[in-house]
Simulated scan of single mutants.
Amino acid sequence: MEINKQDFSSPDEASRLADCDEVLLNYLMREYATKLKRLAYLYTNDHSESEDIIQEVFVSCYRNLSKFRNESNYETWLTRITINKCKDHLRHWSIRNLIYMPLKHLVKTEDSAEKHYIHSENSKEILKQISLLSHKFKEVLILYYFNDMTMQEISETLGINHNTVKSRLLRGKNALLKNLEGGNHNGTL
């Protein structure tokens, strides 16, 4: 869905432009809100905070639609905004000191209570260890493993070289595994 805003010059057309922005925003929200919320949750590990961040993302998106330069696709642009909002959030709050909740959406309901408990503890430990990684490793791991982005998409989103993404992914994974093994963690990634 491409909208060429330069085609609007009269007041009637400007009104249509505002309508187009709203239509585009609604489309972007339907298309990407769930994925962006998951990304925000992986950064913050808090559902209500991730919802607040996504609201900020779409407010920022709406305010800046006219500035979108089509140098990337909307998903990459929104992902970059989300990451920046998450970084701002982490700078303002001491999230690292919180006890992390398990990734409940990864646990199957038919698992036994024992498996559920073990998975819950493993999830807590993995999230804790991810949160302790340096920011450059954490964001690449989150985008790759939890947001299912390719290395090329991560490169475009973060504005870094493809080889840098590969290097950070490998180093981050190794650091995470080392931390998990050092903590006598029995789970695997």
Rank of each mutant, 00 (worst) to 15 (best):
E2T: 14
I3C: 12
I3K: 14
N4I: 08
K5C: 04
S9G: 00
P11Y: 06
D12K: 15
A14Y: 02
D21Y: 08
V23S: 15
A33N: 10
T34I: 12
A40S: 08
L42E: 02
N45K: 03
N45D: 10
D46H: 10
D52G: 07
I54W: 00
E56L: 00
V59C: 13
L65F: 06
L65H: 04
S72H: 01
Y74C: 06
Y74V: 05
T76R: 00
T76N: 07
W77N: 01
L90I: 01
S94F: 12
Y100M: 10
K104M: 00
E114I: 02
E114R: 11
H116D: 04
H116V: 12
H116F: 03
Y117H: 15
I118V: 14
H119W: 06
H119N: 07
S120I: 02
N122A: 14
K124H: 05
E125K: 08
L127T: 03
S134K: 15
K136N: 14
F137W: 08
L141W: 08
L143T: 00
Y144M: 11
M151K: 13
Q152K: 07
N163E: 05
K166D: 04
S167F: 07
K173T: 07
A175C: 06
G183Y: 15
H185P: 00
G187T: 07
T188H: 08
